[in-house]
Design a protein around this nucleic acid. Sequence first.
DNA 1: AGCCATTTAGTTGTGCACAACTAAATTGTG
DNA 2: CACAATTTAGTTGTGCACAACTAAATGGCT
Lengths: 166, 166
Amino acid sequence: MTATPTTSDAADAPDADWLRLDRQICFSLHAASRAFNGVYRVILKDLGLTYPQYLVMLVLWEQGDLPVKRLGEELRLDSGTLSPLVKRLEGAGLVRRERSAEDERSVRVHLTGEGVALRERALEVPRRIMTATGFALDEIVELRARLDQLTTALDAAARAEARGGR
Amino acid sequence: MTATPTTSDAADAPDADWLRLDRQICFSLHAASRAFNGVYRVILKDLGLTYPQYLVMLVLWEQGDLPVKRLGEELRLDSGTLSPLVKRLEGAGLVRRERSAEDERSVRVHLTGEGVALRERALEVPRRIMTATGFALDEIVELRARLDQLTTALDAAARAEARGGR
DNA sequence: AGCCATTTAGTTGTGCACAACTAAATTGTG
DNA sequence: CACAATTTAGTTGTGCACAACTAAATGGCT
């Protein structure tokens, strides 16, 4: 925004400006994510769930019992995150973990009666979140589309960077 | 999106639909945040920095030496996160921590020569990130504005929820 | 059958986020 | 001045994210 002596072309601004801009972009996303997390934290406290635990329960409510592998695919999380998380859900009595009979490697996560029952109390959560955002439904949907687009591009780029480097 | 027997008013869809929508919204933001983090992780590995450490360095490069308190305000982080993070930066030789003489409570974070020097190598980071997003500059700026708007609303709502509850 | 690569969970270690708390210095007030 | 409230860092404990690794089961191949 400020006048820059080095160059006047917006697409090729001085590095220092890019660095300042970068601070604003990456910080914005980071902050938004944590702010969202904070709202969910407050609202979900009633249910005794954390935000990632809520995500797991949403998938189970929607799709029924699943092996840990499938849960990880749905949520883009690996076993290092899911294993202890699911154990905590089991400790809370919301799910059971059962080794599959056909494939002994696989562990299927089942909702307990208590886990199914919790869904009733969760039904009010989305509306409270919507209200908290102050956004209209179509704005949310559009933002979501853009974020998904971003995620797809970033995932591809991360893989490319990891491979080719530089 | 599917036909719903219970009601036909979009603004008052059945709770189950809202729950499914919620899963999509909160997951999108969560995933985008982690995807962004992943790209930064790969790119910053060369510099020996994590994403939050990079944020701290950006603030210091931009604003010069600051007390921990001010850093926390800039980044929306508390001492529980910043104290160990800054110590790791100190361990890496990038900053020094010094108790203020005027106010013994305050600890000022100073860039070392090495910390200042690292800025040169960081100058290429923003362009690589921009490329990774696949977004044009104006798209990024617009997304950023929307995210900031979201953060502001969410922070206010979290405070309101924490107080008034329900 | 015997062997090897793959798949699936889990474990370990590091770092971040945040709540709840402590300790020390400072400020305000009677 | 004395004392209570506030400010500033730091510590502790819990949970998430992810890399790197292990262990066990499976499937394919010769």
